[in-house]
C-alpha cells in the first residue's frame, strides 16, 4: 500500500494567458481530511478537479494510490472509480429517480447486478437520511436534499477518496447543516476527503489540515487551530479576516 494516497507534484495549469495553478505540491495521507480555502480565482477548484482529471494539468504530476493521473497512458476511468466527486451545483441526473441516480454508475461502470446495486443504494440513502425520497425525482427535492443524494451517489462507487467542490456554496443557509453533518459522518468513518469550502465550522470539527491558496499557489498550510489563530502570512491573515 502506498504511503500517500494522493501526491501532487509541481502542478501547473494555464488557460491561455491565465495561470490558474503555478506549481502546487501536495501530499495527502490515507484518511486525511483536508480543507482548501482561498479567494476566488486562487485555483482551488482547478486543483481539486485535476485530481480526477476533469482538468488536465499543463505540467506537473499527480498520483492517486501510485497510479498516475497525468500520464498519457493513465487509465483514468479506473482512477475515477476510486475518486468520488461532489459538485457545487449537485449535477443530479434529472430524468432518473433518486435511487436510479445512485445505482446507475455501479450497474453501468462496474456491471454490478441491479438487485445488489439497488440494495446498496437504499442503504446509502438511509445513511444520508433520505430513505423516504427513494422514488422522488431531483426537481422534487430541496437543495440540501439533492446534495445529500449526490453524496450518496458518489459513495455508491465505494471510492477511496472523496472530492468536494464547494458543496454548500449553492445552498440556502438553513440547509447547509444537513450536508455538513453527512460530511462529518463520512470524515469520522475515515474517508480521505479533499474539500474546497469556506465552512470554517466544518474545518474546526473535521479537518486534519487547512490549506490556504492564493493566485495559483499554496501560501500556507497547517492544522485548523494553527491556521485560524496564528496565520503566519500576511495574505492569510487578510483572507481570514474576511471570512471569520
Amino acid at each position: 500500500m502506498a504511503e500517500k494516497i494522493i501526491r501532487i507534484k509541481d502542478a501547473k495549469k494555464s488557460f491561455g494567458h491565465v495561470h490558474a495553478l503555478r506549481g502546487v505540491d501536495l501530499e495527502v495521507d490515507r484518511g486525511e481530511v483536508i480543507l482548501i480555502v482561498g479567494p476566488s480565482g486562487s485555483g482551488k477548484s482547478t486543483l481539486l478537479r485535476s485530481v480526477n482529471r476533469l482538468e488536465q494539468l499543463t505540467s506537473g504530476e499527480i498520483w492517486v494510490e501510485d497510479d498516475s493521473v497525468t500520464s498519457a497512458h493513465a487509465d483514468i476511468r479506473k482512477i475515477r472509480e476510486e475518486v468520488g466527486m461532489v459538485f457545487q451545483s449537485f449535477n443530479l441526473f434529472p430524468h432518473l429517480s433518486v435511487l436510479e441516480n445512485i445505482a446507475l454508475a455501479p450497474t453501468t461502470v462496474k456491471n454490478e447486478k441491479p438487485e445488489l446495486a439497488y440494495q446498496r443504494a437504499e442503504k446509502l440513502l438511509a445513511r444520508v437520511g433520505l430513505s423516504d425520497k427513494a422514488h422522488a425525482y431531483p426537481d422534487q427535492l430541496s437543495g440540501g436534499q439533492q446534495q445529500r443524494v449526490a453524496i450518496a451517489r458518489a459513495l455508491a462507487m465505494q471510492p477511496k477518496i472523496m472530492l468536494f467542490d464547494e458543496p454548500t456554496s449553492a445552498l440556502d443557509p438553513e440547509m447547509i447543516k444537513e450536508v455538513l453533518d453527512v460530511m462529518l459522518d463520512l470524515a469520522k468513518d475515515g474517508m480521505t476527503m479533499l474539500v474546497v469550502s469556506h465552512e470554517m465550522g466544518f474545518a474546526r470539527a473535521a479537518a486534519d489540515r487547512v490549506i490556504f491558496m492564493d493566485e495559483g499557489m499554496v501560501v500556507e498550510s497547517g492544522t485548523p487551530a494553527e491556521l485560524f489563530s496564528n496565520p503566519k502570512e500576511e495574505r492569510t491573515k487578510r483572507f481570514l479576516e474576511h471570512i471569520l
Binding site: N52, L54, R77, K78, R80, E81, V83, G84, M85, F87, N91, L92, F93, L104, A105, T108, V109, K110, A150, R153, A154, M157
Partner: peptide
C-alpha cells in the same frame, strides 16, 4: 462531468 467523475465513459 458528474457522469465522468463516476467513472462512466
Amino acid at each position: 462531468e458528474a457522469a465522468l467523475a463516476l467513472g462512466m465513459s
